[in-house]
């Protein structure tokens, strides 16, 4: 421990803390129920209608006891992990993603859709409230990446890689945090919501361009899935950071708001 005096900062107001945990629950439910929905048709095509010639991902079971995953035309045996997996009822079967990753934890498309469409609303409304209130309070300025932050990105990374003794000077959030939060909250998460809407026939009927800009219904489904993978990668990195940058301090600050610097 260094003897330098440490200071307390009130880093996360109540609304941010509530939004954070609501998003965690919603993200967990949306990923699980999304995989449930994916399992009903475990193909992703870069096209409007289904088109095997433009298939990017196909998870299947060519015969009982065998699971395969085909990505860009290359087939891998993935028995047990993808294609032929646990069915959540004590056995195994032809399920793309295993039952333990899906909500509900057994094959149930209608249940998966109910959970997904409900928590999509929760996540989106929570984002909207957070955005409006944060903007009103002028809090977004602290976390949105600016042009002036860009030269500080590498020095910050160098500090994390222990190539530099001190981080570059920054405000409440460091430049890498700003880059990650800006990408996730203002680009990826909205894109996941929009692509989810774009793959719906009712939305396509009232807003053709929305479906068309993503390349059609199946393509929107592909972007929706890809966006989920990016959010999952952010989640993994985020949790890694929390564990390595002072777990207690990080958890305390997201529960009580107080962060020790």
């Amino acid at each position: 421990m260094s003897d330098a005096p440490r200071s307390w900062i009130y880093r996360y107001p109540l609304l941010v803390r509530i939004s954070h945990w609501v998003w965690l629950v919603a993200f967990f439910v949306l990923v699980g129920s999304g995989l449930q929905i994916f399992n009903a048709s475990p193909n992703l095509d870069a096209s409007d209608k289904s088109d095997p010639a433009r298939r990017v991902l196909a998870i299947g079971s060519p015969s009982d006891g065998h699971g395969t995953t085909t990505l860009f035309g290359r087939t891998f045996t993935t028995t047990g992990a993808l294609g032929w997996t646990s069915d959540g009822m004590g056995g195994r079967g032809a399920h793309a993603f295993p039952a333990w990753t899906t909500i509900p934890g057994y094959q149930d498309l209608s249940g998966g859709r109910r959970w997904h469409l409900f928590f999509a609303w929760i996540a989106a409304l929570c984002w909207l409230v957070w955005l409006v209130v944060s903007a009103f309070r002028g809090k977004l300025r602290d976390m949105v990446l600016r042009v002036s932050d860009i030269p500080k990105l590498w020095p910050m990374q160098a500090y994390y890689l222990k190539l530099r003794a001190q981080p570059p000077p920054y405000g409440i959030y460091n430049p890498l945090q700003k880059a990650a939060y800006t990408a996730v909250l203002f680009v990826i998460a909205p894109l996941v919501v929009i692509t989810g809407l774009a793959l719906s026939p009712g939305i396509d009927a009232i807003a053709h361009p929305l479906t068309a800009i993503f390349g059609g219904r199946q393509f929107a489904r592909l972007w929706h899935f890809a966006g989920m993978l990016v959010l999952l990668a952010f989640f993994a990195l985020h949790v890694f950071q929390v564990f390595t940058q002072g777990l207690a301090n990080q958890m305390r600050s997201m529960i009580t708001g107080w962060y020790q610097r």
Partner: peptide, 23 residues
Amino acid sequence: AGCGPISAALNGNDGVRRALASA
């Protein structure tokens, strides 16, 4: 791990189903 029993119980609960159906 799969929350099979948990999701089965939640999924089968009338109150939960009504709440989810509000969407």
